[in-house]
Write a protein that binds this DNA or RNA. Structure first.
Lengths: 191, 191
DNA sequence: GGGGAAAATTAAGATACCTTAAGAAATACT
DNA sequence: AGTATTTCTTAAGGTATCTTAATTTTCCCC
């Protein structure tokens, strides 16, 4: 169990003393997942949140009609879960699947709540994460509502060059809310 | 300055003792806004977050081409600001305008940070708010990506009946990401 | 309560994006 | 390395949604 990367990430936002770091570390469980493996499947209960040490994951929703919508990608130093279902202890609405082999740190809801109570500064760290996550979603919403597919595609490439390089166009299309065929057409336009 | 409604709202999530309640109350400023008045305009600095005691507000973005996209509505017991710009002390990307006369409680970023430091349980309350806000945006994103405009309209009516009743269809259309003309067509369909 | 502005409706023509299907290219499996 | 599977591309025809504009309805303000 190597919490080095997580502790460094936390350190960017708050200071934890050594006992706090150790308590946190003792709540974490290492989890390796192979490419294509699922960390969470729709309808399952969602009891964990994951910190990505390495690799790349994709969270996506499958509609009753089978439409695949990508909610987010998570790469090194990101946290990922189905937040709505995690927080409210409901069955997942989202699948989380490894795009590449991953090393994760897993934290259960029960442990997280305990860590919040025992380490207020960790709760601050998490509050900041949630502010950022909310802000990011709001920004994405603005762009989805006001921009065309081509503009959204270019924004995505610029904003997440590392992710763009490692996921398929089908997955990018699913993130943008368009079909792979249409993304292909967009790319074919000589800008 | 009447923090009763806010304190009741906080009480649903965490317990504050009397001195904490008083400290919080002393950080708040009452603000009345009339219908159509702006609480925040795009490009202004966004230094406050607002709790709605009564009334109804709309946050929306205007694109360079003048397209109006509604980010959120806020009614009684909601907090509202341009979170991204508030947190990062950047110029606002969002306008916030009163749809009806409002009574607000205003909290500055500096006061909020102070309250976080002095009242850890308030930071917990806020962490929970941010989790919920993030979850809500994620849910909305799923629905925007996977549902048709008509489905989104029906979802909106069911989810926010009180809001639907008080905003124009033009504003609902802007929230759904469609034109008022198309919303009108959707409504005209029998069933 | 009447006049003026904004909102809602309707309709016709335009465009962004989808569906299907087939072939080509890339990637994975043995 | 060779085959199978998945991805990407292309193209034709279809649908959802937009634009414009004119008309009606609602609502706001004096």
């Amino acid at each position: 169990m190597d919490p080095t990367l997580l502790l460094a990430h936390i350190r960017k936002h708050v200071k934890l003393d050594l006992p706090e770091q150790q308590l946190l570390a003792s709540s974490l469980v290492e989890k390796s997942v192979k490419r294509k493996e699922f960390v969470l499947k729709q309808e399952e209960s969602c009891k964990h949140i994951y910190f990505v040490n390495s690799g790349l994951l994709r969270a996506f929703h499958l509609s009753p009609q089978g439409k695949d919508s990508t909610i987010m990608f998570a790469t090194k130093e990101w946290w990922i879960t189905d937040m709505y279902c995690f927080v409210n202890r409901l069955p997942a609405m989202v699948n989380i699947q490894a795009v590449q082999d991953c090393e994760l740190l897993s934290l259960s809801k029960d442990h997280l709540d305990k860590v919040f109570s025992e380490i207020p500064r960790f709760e601050r760290y998490f509050r900041i994460l949630m502010e950022n996550a909310y802000s990011r979603e709001q920004l994405r919403m603005i762009q989805n509502l006001s921009n065309t597919a081509k503009e959204r595609y270019n924004t995505f490439l610029n904003k997440y060059p590392d992710i763009s390089a490692h996921v398929t166009q089908k997955q990018i299309a699913s993130y943008l809310g368009i079909t792979p065929e249409f993304l292909s057409a967009i790319r074919a336009e000589k800008d």
